[in-house]
Design a protein around this nucleic acid. Structure first.
Lengths: 346, 346
DNA sequence: CTGTTAGCGCCTTCAT
DNA sequence: ATGAAGGCGCTAACAG
């Protein structure tokens, strides 16, 4: 193992400035008044030598790493490339930078693993002080993960997932209300046979969206038109196959609108609709959910319910940092508003 | 600043196992034979107590952080949400995990900044041992960044950017050849008036693509049909506006094919083409570059030149780690092959 | 207001 | 094969 080149240490700065190590430390931390002239001398030496305190040393001494983690629990190895995660990362990064925190990314595996490969390793090894966590897909193990996090007394924030107890921070969005409003809007525009596409892989946020959709249908006396098709997964192809099934029914008329559990599913539905020669939105209106970057670039641009993942990343990071710094954080449940974006598919 | 809860230390493990600290360390590192029975006793204690060595302490002692950085120099704050970066991150993460490294993300700002905010801070503070770096967009400052990296003796790999000297690792792809082949393919299929859309914001990789295109046109005696339209930026809208300009020319016939400097530009071109009632690919064939995830989902699915960003992330991380571990890395320039993906837009 | 002392958890060197 | 001592760079507590 090759060692890093030696960096400038506080001792060298002290010598260069002709003061004690302690004084340098005090200057760095704006501690109780160091004589101004000395302060200047030290600052000058710091800049001249290019001194930066060692993270390892500070971390060891203070028992904190000044690092936030973003932990993605997802069986899919490419999960990190998911645009939604990119949004969260961007948000966290902004806040972390502004607060002099670093950002560590990891994709722990939940399966039983060799010792030393525990999924809480970044916590246990003192690499991160707190984490934003997303539990993707379906897994019985998720509850175990949360339980262990709690038991380890970890500071963490969960994305789009509610959890009991007040150990965790939960970042939620108004999924149900967003779906309710989206459905109501379609109804107001004259649609009535509105279908919903979800997936057999349960996802709490989408569960809520489904509930919102059903509630809206019932509220408008349309319960007999409630229709849910389940995709085998969360992909465009899956959405297309679910839509096909809806279109192949012979015992009832086609839907005149469809809401996708997420944008990917909605895009798939659009493909299937066009494949049989139907027009969007004339014959069938399509609405997505998430508003990932590409929703506006498909044709026709998808109307969708915007979920503020970037802001979630920001708020989560802010909350975590506040908590770490001992500020009392008022709410452990933070609910961010969704927003309907109307484009051309409705 | 609240302190982390105290973790299990090596000392406690030693006591629990009834051996010396040293022995525990030896066991952890598979050092020269510890008596098997003792080994078992130690391992047992480690597992029972849930011991994980402190990253800060190890880092301090060894002068290494076992952490790789992904540094994105991009004026756009949302740059991290770029799907291309997501691919790189996913690739790096896989390799880092497999080698027991962590992954740190940062978006240093290049502009002159307060002391303590230097863009090499993650290096100087010993937070990372090496970094994969992408210099996005145009900037005179990029050369200065590289120079400073070299001077600081940093271990780093540059993405899609060639640099002289043998300090840096360069991860490149066959941009020119890919563009050459794509152009040739279009010609072989009977297209001749092939245009290229790039951007006024210079990007080395796209520069090479442009060169490949021009070389192919010349090689087939089509230099008089060479036509380049520049978008003001790298967005879909920019691509559309550039395409419009191409379509508004009155002094020469429309192109019968167009190659986008990247997929975003190509998608924009498709919008512009359809906006005037032309058909793809019948009237104008469209070809993209990058093959980001969504290329296959727009309609018609874009043919494109796949650039292996995920593999780049992997290879970059592998190379960096090998180098850090003292293995001699054969090549400082690693060139990954692009691959033409034919879909329905050509 | 400045300097000295001690120790965070770990690993390397030396001694046993 | 195992134990003791020292120090990586830093900061909190105390001493001057």
């Amino acid at each position: 193992m090759k060692l890093r080149k030696r960096n400038v240490t506080i001792r060298e700065v002290a010598r260069a400035a002709g003061v004690s190590i302690q004084t340098v430390s005090n200057v760095m931390h704006n501690k109780s008044s160091v004589r101004p002239e000395i302060q200047v001398r030290v600052l000058d030496a710091i800049k001249r030598l290019g001194y930066y305190p060692s993270q390892s040393a500070q971390g060891l001494r203070q028992g904190a790493s000044l690092t936030l983690g973003f932990l993605v629990f997802d069986p899919n190895p490419r999960a990190l490339a998911d645009p939604v995660h990119g949004e969260v990362i961007a948000g966290m990064n902004d806040v972390a930078r502004a607060n002099n925190y670093s950002l560590l990314i990891d994709t722990p595996s939940i399966r039983p693993e060799a010792p030393g490969e525990h999924f809480l390793r970044p916590f246990y090894t003192n690499r991160i002080d707190a984490a934003v966590i997303t539990l993707s897909g379906t897994s019985d193990l998720h509850d175990a993960v949360i339980a262990e996090l709690v038991e380890a007394n970890a500071v963490f924030a969960l994305l789009e997932r509610e959890v009991s107890g007040d150990q965790a921070f939960c970042l939620l969005s108004t999924n149900a209300a967003g779906a309710y409003d989206a459905t109501s809007l379609l109804i107001k525009r004259g649609r009535s046979r509105i279908a919903f596409i979800d997936s057999i892989q349960v996802w709490p946020a989408v569960e809520q969206r489904l509930q919102g959709y059903m509630r809206a249908m019932r509220a408008h006396g349309l319960e007999s038109h409630i229709q849910v098709a389940s995709s085998p997964d969360w992909t465009v192809e899956g959405g297309a196959s679910a839509m096909q099934r809806l279109l192949n029914q012979t015992d009832r008329p086609w839907p005149d609108a469809v809401i996708g559990g997420n944008d990917l599913l909605a895009v798939g539905a659009m493909h299937a609709i066009r494949a049989v020669g139907l027009r969007i939105p004339d014959d069938i209106a399509v609405m997505g959910f998430d508003d990932f970057e590409f929703a506006r670039y498909v044709e026709p641009a998808i109307s969708t319910v915007h979920v503020p993942y970037y802001d979630m990343g920001r708020r989560a990071a802010e909350t975590l940092i506040d908590h770490l710094q001992g500020k009392t954080v008022a709410e452990r449940r933070i609910i961010l508003p969704t927003r309907i974006i109307l484009r051309r598919s409705t």
